[in-house]
Design a protein around this nucleic acid. Structure first.
Lengths: 366, 366
DNA sequence: CTGAAAGCGCTAACAC
DNA sequence: GTGTTAGCGCTTTCAG
C-alpha cells in the first residue's frame, strides 16, 4: 500500500515492509504480529506460523528505533575502554560483542585515551542512545564523570573500583594470584633482584598491580628496591623509556615484571638495542597475555588475564542490573572476580653469574 | 508534570526531561524547541536563547530513537571489518570513529572473521538499526551478502572491489606505489632473489597485493619464482608457517615481502627460531605499518597504508552518498584512492655472500 | 517567525 | 487468544 511514494526507488525491493504490511499479509492484527515477534506465549501455533511465513516472505524486520521508543529499552550496551590501540582492548571488545550479540544486544564502543573531554562526550552519547548499561573498562581515573551516569540510574560495571551506588557493580581482578606465581617462578629460577615497571598511577589497575607486586615480594622475603620500581605508561614506548631509566642506575635487577605486555614488549625491544640478551642477561615478564605475546622475540612469559572472563563478567553484571525486577533489587550479585595465572614462555631464565644484569660496568648492590 | 509515576526513583534527578518540559520552561511550543535543537534558521535569537537556557538548566538531551523514528535518519554508520584482532583494524576503527563522532555520527562495529554466517547476521543488525551507510572494510569475499545491503539502497563503501550499483562507492588502495618502492629498495641493497608471502586469495586485497608484486618484479626485470610466492593467511601464525614452507625449499630467496605486517612479524619470529638472522641472512618487509612494526626485533621495514586516510575516504564516501540530494545523485564522487609508501627500518639490509639465505645446505639456484 | 496537529513503527494495556 | 487503541518523543507540514 505504501509502495508508491518512494522517490529514487530504482530496482529497490517493494519498499520497507511494515508491521502493518505483515499483519495484512498474514491476515491478523498488528498486535498479533508484535506478540509473535516477541515470542509471547499468548499466540496460537496456527497464527504464529502464518505470521512467520509472512515475515519471511516480505523479508521484514522490526524497526528498532520504534521498538526502543515505545518500550523504553534499547537493547544496546555501552563499553568504554581506555585505548583501542592496545591489543588487549580489541580482544576484550571482541569477546564482549560476541556475548552481547548472542543475547540480542548491540554494543556501542568508545575509547577515551584517558581524555576527560572525550569521556564526557562519550558518556553523553551513551545516554542519548539510551544504552541499558555501560561497562567502563578503562581501569581507573574517571570517577567524576561516572556520576553523570549514576545519576541517570544507569547500570554500570567498573573494573577495580568500588562505587557505593546500587546501580554500580564491580569487577575485581585478582592480580595477586598471577603475580605471586610470577615471583615464585623467578625465585625458583634463582632471581632475587626483581624490578617492576608499573603503569600510570592514575589507573587503579596499575596501582593494584604494583601493590600486589610489593606485597608478594614481602611474602617471599625479597627486598623491594624502590628505584627498581618505575612508573611507565602501559605503552610500547613507555617500556623503552622505563628500561632506559633502569639502565642508567648503578645497580640493576636481573629480572623485571611489567605492569602490562605492551611495556614488556617495549623492554624487549630496548634490551635488544642495548645489546642485553633476554632472558640470559635479563628475564622479563609481562601481564595480560595479548595474542602478540606468543610471537615476540623471545616469546614472552606473562601473566594471563582472560579477556573472555572479563568480558563475561562485565556482561553478566550489566544484564543482572538491567533485568532485575525492582523487587529483588538489592539481592543481585554486585561483585565479580576474574583471576590471573602465569604462562611461562621464553623470556625468563636463570640469571647468569653475579654480574649478569650489567653490560660492562660491574653491578653493585645498592 | 511527568515526574511522579517513576517507580524506583531513589535520588534520581527529576526524571528525564522531555521536549515538552523544555518547551514549558522556555514558554514556547515544542516545535520551536525542535527547531532550535536542529539549528533551523527560522528561530528568532530571543526564543533560541530562552530555549538553550532551558535545555541547559534541565540537562536535557533529545531521545535519538524518537528522532530516528520520525526523521528516518539514525545518524549511525556501520563499519564491518575482517578481524578486530589484527591491530590494523582497531587503528582503522579508531580513526573512523573519531571522524564520525566529530560529525555527529555514531558507529556500529562488527567483525566477521571471514565467517559468512556472522556477516549475514551483522548486515541484518545494521539494517535493523537503520544505519545510514556501511563501510565494508573486510577486503574481499563478501559479495553475496552485499546484495542484501544494496537491495535496501543502503550506501556502501567497499575496499578494492567495484560493484555496479549507484549506492556503492569504492576505495582503491594503490599498493603499486609502495610495493614498487619496496622492491627498488631491495634491489638497491643488492637483492635479486625476492619472495612474497601472500594473503589468503579469497581477499581481493591479498590478490591485488600479490599482483602488484609480480608486476613490479617484471618491471625491474627480476625473475618471479612461483614457489617463492606462498599463500599465507595474514596472521602471525600464518607467517610462521609460510616461512617454514620456504625453508623447506632447496633454493631460497634473500629477501621477503609480506602481504601484511602480521605475516612479517610471524616470519621474524620463525626466522629467529630457525637461527636465521634478520636482516643479515634474510631481509623482510611488511605491509600496513601497524604501530607494532616499529617495535619488533629488528624494527620492521614496511609499506605504510595510512589508516587515517582509509578511514577518511570511507567516511567521506558514505557521507556523500547519505547526504546527496536526489537531484545530483549521479554526480558524486564514487571512487577514492589511498596511497602507500615505504618506511625503511631495520629488517632490511644488503644480502650476505652468495650462500646467504641458507643455514647449512648450499643454496642452489632453481 | 511561531504554534497546532499529524503521524514515524511499534508495544502494552484494555476490551472482546 | 486476538483485536483496538493510546501513546513513546520527536519532526514536519500547514495555518496563522
Amino acid at each position: 500500500m505504501n509502495a508508491v511514494k518512494r522517490k529514487g526507488s530504482r530496482t529497490t525491493v517493494a519498499s520497507k515492509p511494515d508491521i502493518r504490511t505483515v499483519a495484512a499479509l498474514a491476515k491478523v492484527s498488528i498486535a498479533t504480529v508484535s506478540r509473535t515477534i516477541n515470542a509471547s506465549p499468548a499466540v496460537s501455533e496456527k497464527l504464529a506460523q502464518r505470521v512467520w511465513q509472512a515475515i519471511e516472505q516480505l523479508n521484514y524486520f522490526p524497526n528498532t528505533h520504534a521498538r526502543s521508543l515505545v518500550s523504553g529499552r534499547s537493547r544496546i550496551l555501552g563499553i568504554i575502554v581506555e585505548n583501542i590501540t592496545n591489543p588487549f582492548f580489541p580482544e576484550l571488545i571482541a569477546s564482549f560483542e560476541e556475548i552481547a550479540v548472542a543475547h540480542g544486544y548491540e554494543i556501542l564502543v568508545s575509547s577515551t585515551n584517558n581524555d576527560a573531554q572525550l569521556l564526557t562526550n562519550c558518556v553523553r552519547r551513551m545516554l542519548e542512545r539510551k544504552v541499558e548499561g555501560v561497562a567502563v573498562l578503562t581501569f581507573g581515573g574517571e570517577e567524576p564523570v561516572l556520576d553523570q551516569l549514576a545519576i541517570h540510574n544507569m547500570p554500570i560495571v567498573l573494573a577495580e573500583f568500588h562505587l557505593d551506588d546500587p546501580s554500580v557493580s564491580t569487577i575485581l581482578l585478582d592480580y595477586s594470584a598471577g603475580i605471586h606465581e610470577a615471583v615464585r617462578h623467578l625465585v625458583e629460577l634463582g632471581h632475587t633482584r626483581i624490578g617492576f615497571l608499573a603503569g600510570p598511577h592514575v589507573l587503579h589497575s596499575a596501582l593494584t598491580r604494583r601493590e600486589a607486586f610489593e606485597q608478594t615480594m614481602h611474602e617471599v622475603d625479597l627486598r623491594v628496591h624502590k628505584n627498581w620500581i618505575i612508573e611507565c605508561d602501559h605503552t610500547l614506548k613507555g617500556g623503552v623509556t622505563g628500561f632506559e631509566k633502569l639502565m642508567a642506575l648503578p645497580s640493576r635487577p636481573t629480572a623485571l615484571i611489567c605492569s602490562n605486555d605492551m611495556t614488556a614488549i617495549g623492554v624487549l625491544r630496548a634490551a635488544y638495542m642495548a645489546n642485553l640478551r633476554v632472558p640470559e642477561d635479563l628475564s622479563v615478564i609481562g601481564l595480560d597475555d595479548i595474542d602478540f605475546a606468543e610471537f615476540t622475540l623471545p616469546p614472552l612469559t606473562t601473566i594471563r588475564l582472560s579477556r573472555h572472563e572479563l568480558a563475561k563478567a562485565a556482561f553478566d553484571a550489566l544484564r543482572l542490573q538491567a533485568e532485575k525486577s525492582s523487587s529483588a533489587e538489592s539481592m543481585i550479585q554486585r561483585e565479580f572476580l576474574v583471576s590471573t595465572s602465569l604462562v611461562v614462555r621464553g623470556s625468563t631464565a636463570a640469571p647468569a653469574a653475579e654480574k649478569s644484569a650489567s653490560k660492562s660496568k660491574t653491578s653493585l648492590r645498592d
